[in-house]
Computed example of a mutant assay.
Amino acid sequence: MGVEEELLLVADDGAPSPSAQAVLDTAEEAHGPLENEFMEEQLETATPPTRSLTELADALRAGRRGAQEAAAGQGARVAALGTSPLAFTGTTVSKLRYMRARAEFGITAWEQLTNGCHVHVSVSDDAEGVAVLDRIGPWLAPLLAISTNSPFWQGQPTGYESFRSQVWSRWPTAGPTRLFGTPEAYHAAVEAIVATGTVLDQAMVYFDARLSARYPTVEIRVADVCLDPDTATLLAALSRGLVETAARDAASGVAAPDVHPEILRTAHWRAGRSGLDGDLVDPRTWRPAPAHDVVGALVEHVKEALADAGDLDAVTDLLGALWSRGSGAARQRAWYAGADGDLGQVAVRAADELLS
């Protein structure tokens, strides 16, 4: 498995800093793999593939540390925030594809200063990958709830734990998918979407989970970037557990649950609104249930795979710590209250705790 994290570049006052290209131009090999994202106010890091959860946790911290050190050379800081707490006017990276997207998609692109966490889990081939995609959909909303880390948008509290998920849902291809059954059906669906001329290319097919175009992996894309690396590690472990459980179910002939995309979309919205602080939609019943119960059901669903990977004890500890300290969104709101409503200080505090 491997993890890609999108991170926010901020100035000393917490305002988004359009300095990504300057950071990349001066970054050194020791800073690790750093890339552009859509906006100049963002950097992306990526861990190497790893089997060990401990190695992954170390790689996540190393990636954040490298980004932090590279940004400091340009007078910027790095914060793991799903959205900027302060209002912004985003600066699109000067690459042809991004500029085409800006022209084609209007405000959807102009305001796309959002940061997600993408978890890649290896699969043996496209057939196994599609079998996994067909089976993990009901459990993706709880993953979003665990990651929620974007309660502010354009200088305002939103009432959402993940407003990033709301902004991201503007893209025409974002969201849950139907059952595909075969790789041929999956690839035909992607090709049909591109053939409409609505998106630029296959890379703009932004399903909640998809087959990676670059790696032999399933890419789970629902999460906010996590405020701290421990939550990102927990997210990755649960994602791998989901993929492994789905692959085993498929190999054993367990039928994929035929849940309509509109129900999955509703569950996803609920997770972004409530996070860990209210009810979620329980995939066992499709009725509301406390977030603690639904996340517990997720862990139970993947327990065997976690145990076989040696991850169960770590997940138990990481999840206990998350319940104790609260989600990224809850912590941001607490900082906001403690700073007398100074949203810049929320971003500064997040930068201070990048490696915590």
Rank of each mutant, 00 (worst) to 15 (best):
M1N: 04
G2I: 05
G2R: 12
E4Q: 15
L7Y: 08
V10N: 08
G14K: 08
A15G: 08
A15P: 08
S17T: 08
S17K: 07
S19D: 13
A22W: 02
A22P: 01
L24V: 09
A27W: 01
E28T: 09
E29F: 04
G32V: 08
G32P: 06
P33H: 13
E44A: 05
T47N: 05
R51V: 14
L53P: 06
T54L: 04
L60H: 07
G66S: 11
A71P: 03
A71S: 09
Q74F: 02
V78Q: 10
L81H: 06
T83M: 10
A87V: 06
G90Q: 01
T92C: 12
Y98G: 01
A101I: 10
R102Y: 02
E104D: 15
G106V: 09
T108R: 06
A109S: 07
W110I: 00
T114D: 06
V119Y: 03
H120D: 04
V121Y: 00
S122W: 04
S122Q: 12
A127W: 05
A127F: 07
V130Y: 03
A131M: 04
D134W: 01
P138M: 03
W139D: 00
A141G: 03
P142R: 06
L143T: 02
A145Q: 02
S150W: 00
Q154W: 01
Q156R: 10
P157G: 01
G159Y: 01
Y160L: 10
Q166F: 08
V167W: 00
W168I: 07
W168L: 13
S169I: 04
T173P: 04
A174R: 03
T177A: 08
R178H: 14
F180L: 09
P183C: 03
E184R: 03
Y186C: 10
V190F: 01
V190T: 06
A192Q: 09
V194G: 02
V199S: 01
L200S: 03
L200M: 15
D201Y: 12
Q202M: 14
Q202N: 13
D208A: 07
A209G: 11
A209C: 07
P216S: 07
T217G: 11
V218P: 13
V222G: 09
A223Y: 00
D224H: 07
D230K: 15
T231S: 14
L238H: 08
R240V: 09
L242D: 04
L242R: 01
E244N: 10
A246N: 04
A255E: 15
L264D: 02
A271H: 03
G272E: 02
G278R: 12
P283F: 04
R284D: 15
R287N: 12
P288L: 13
P290E: 09
A291K: 00
A291N: 02
D293V: 14
A305P: 02
D308C: 05
G310W: 00
G310Y: 06
D311W: 14
A314T: 15
D317W: 12
G320E: 15
R325I: 07
A329E: 10
R331V: 13
Q332M: 12
R333I: 04
G341H: 10
G344M: 11
V346H: 14
A347C: 11
A350F: 06
E353Q: 13
S356L: 11
S356C: 08
